[in-house]
Design a protein around this nucleic acid. Structure first.
Length: 255
DNA sequence: ATGGCGGCTCGCAGCCGA
């Protein structure tokens, strides 16, 4: 079973890339972030024609998440229960017994911004949600854009990033607290190339120079982690014309 | 590095992303 996460930065613009990628890799489940698409405008026919079932929660301009699946999507939950949030950042569904939570964690903008406090509060709410989900779902995967680089090795220039957004101690602590619920960062289960990232700024030829950050993650419960056979970043779509600034990541689970 | 890019909006400039 292949599960993937991809921040597409506008589903409308990236639909051709996504469809090509679906046909090439045939992942069982794909979690999309930053669809930036209202539900009424979701490209349902194109996704369905590609052989995928899909659930989504979107809005105009910002945010928006979706889960695509070859098999049925059951017990769909939108948002974080008991957490008021007008921003469409979370959707969950069960596929073949795997509870799948698609997340688009707030960016935070800067440490002195209101958006940063929102990010930390949001992560706290996510933690409570996941903690509860683990009680009933031993096979749990949380896939998406976390907007957190967990360690210095996850940014191209740790000194340059300092304690800023994406790497600040409070954000990294929030990420660690998620792991401490009984989750693992699937990427680090395996030997990986040095300087592996999932996002590169559009500016400064950052991709060509591999000036990136690893901020997209697939966290697995212990029950899934022991069945996990691989985790890889696919940088190929980042090389296309008009790419998303994020690359997709894929895990393979033995089922 | 903090800008440069790119996507968005009842746009024609400014916000936001990361």
């Amino acid at each position: 079973m292949k599960l993937a996460a991809w921040n597409v930065n506008s589903l409308k613009v990236r639909l051709p890339h996504l469809l090509d990628w679906l046909h090439l890799h045939r992942p069982d489940v794909v979690c999309l972030q930053e669809t930036k698409t209202e539900d009424a405008n979701f490209p349902l026919a194109q996704i369905t024609d590609a052989g995928y079932k899909v659930v989504y929660s979107g809005q105009k301009t910002y945010n928006g998440v979706a889960i695509l699946s070859l098999q049925d999507l059951e017990d769909v939950v939108v948002g974080i229960p008991d957490f008021e949030d007008p921003q469409r950042r979370v959707i969950a569904a069960t596929v073949q017994g795997v509870r799948t939570i698609c997340v688009y964690v707030p960016n935070g903008q800067a440490l002195d911004s209101d958006k940063y406090s929102y990010k930390l509060a949001w992560l706290q709410a996510l933690r409570a949600y996941v903690s509860n989900e683990l009680l009933t779902h031993p096979k749990l995967a949380i896939l998406g854009d976390y907007n957190i680089a967990p360690a210095d090795e996850d940014v191209h220039d740790p000194k340059g990033w300092g304690d800023g957004i994406l790497v600040s101690p409070a954000e990294r602590d929030a990420f660690l607290q998620l792991l401490q619920l009984g989750l693992v960062d699937s990427f680090r289960l395996f030997e990986q190339p040095e300087n592996s990232y999932t996002w590169w700024d559009y500016r400064m030829a950052a991709f060509r120079r591999n000036m990136g950050a690893r901020i997209d993650h697939i966290l697995l419960s212990d029950g899934l982690a022991k069945l996990c056979e691989s985790c890889e970043v696919d940088v190929v779509p980042r090389k296309l014309e008009r790419p998303s600034d994020h690359a997709p990541i894929i895990v393979t689970i033995r089922v």
